[in-house]
Design a protein around this nucleic acid. Sequence first.
DNA 1: ATCGTATATCGTCGATAGGCGATTAATAAT
DNA 2: ATTATTAATCGCCTATCGACGATATACGAT
Lengths: 118, 118
Amino acid sequence: MATDDGLFNDVTKPDNLSADECAEYLAVLSKGLAHPARVEIIRKLSNTDRKTRCICSDIVKMLPLAQSSVSQHLKILKDTGWIQDRIEGTSVCYCLREGIMDRYGDLLKQCVRKEDCR
Amino acid sequence: MATDDGLFNDVTKPDNLSADECAEYLAVLSKGLAHPARVEIIRKLSNTDRKTRCICSDIVKMLPLAQSSVSQHLKILKDTGWIQDRIEGTSVCYCLREGIMDRYGDLLKQCVRKEDCR
DNA sequence: ATCGTATATCGTCGATAGGCGATTAATAAT
DNA sequence: ATTATTAATCGCCTATCGACGATATACGAT
C-alpha cells in the first residue's frame, strides 16, 4: 500500500498554486533531483513500468553506494514526492509517482516560463 | 562581459553526454533550482527579456532576504549554469543563459524519460 | 579627495546533506 | 526456533547550505 508522508503528498491535487507555493513546490521537487545518485534512481524507475518489479536491492546493486546511503536517497525521493513504495513480501518495490514527470514539467513552465501562477 | 566560472560553463556545447555525465549535469542544474528564492529569481529573469535591464538591486528588493544572501544565491545560480551577468556601470545586470530552460527540459527527457543518453 | 551607491566577499553560526558501518525489524525459509 | 535476507534507522563524522552583519571593492558624482 502506498505510504503517506512527505512534503507534497497529494501530488495529484494541488493545481491552483500561488506564486510562492509554485516556487516552494518546484524547489522541493528540484531538490529531489539535486544529486546524481537520485537522478540515476529516477532514470532507472522511469524505465521500469509499473507492473514490472523495481526492487530496492536492484537499485543498491546499481549504485556505488552503501545500502544505507541508497536507502537515504530513496527516502529523500519519497519525501520530495518523486516516488512511491510498496512492500512485497520481504522486499520493497519502488516506482515513480504517477504523472510526476509531467507535473514537474508543468511546474517549470508555469513558474519559470511565464507569469501565470495564481 | 560574461564571466567564466561555474561547473558547466559551456552550457551551449555538451551534447553527447554519457549517462553519468547526464546525471551529473542534471543534478547540478536541479541544485540550482532547489531553493524557493532561486526559483523566484529565475522566474523574474525569465520574464525579463535580454534587452531589458535586470538589475541585481531589483532582485534584492524583490526578495525578503539580506543583500548578501541574495548575492550568494545569484552566485549559486551562476555556478550551476543558470544565469549570466554583465557589468553596467555601477550595477550588474543578470539574465538567463541562452536556452538554458530548453536545455534543462531536454536533459530531463534524455536522462529521465528514456535510455538514450550516450 | 570624498562620499554615496551597488555588489561581492568574508567570517560566523546553526541546520541540513551525505557518507558509512552497525543495529534493528520484519519476513521467508529451514 | 533458528537462520538468512531485505530494508530502514541510528549514530557518527565531515562538508555544504543558508542566513546574517560587517567589510571590501568598484565606480559615479560632487
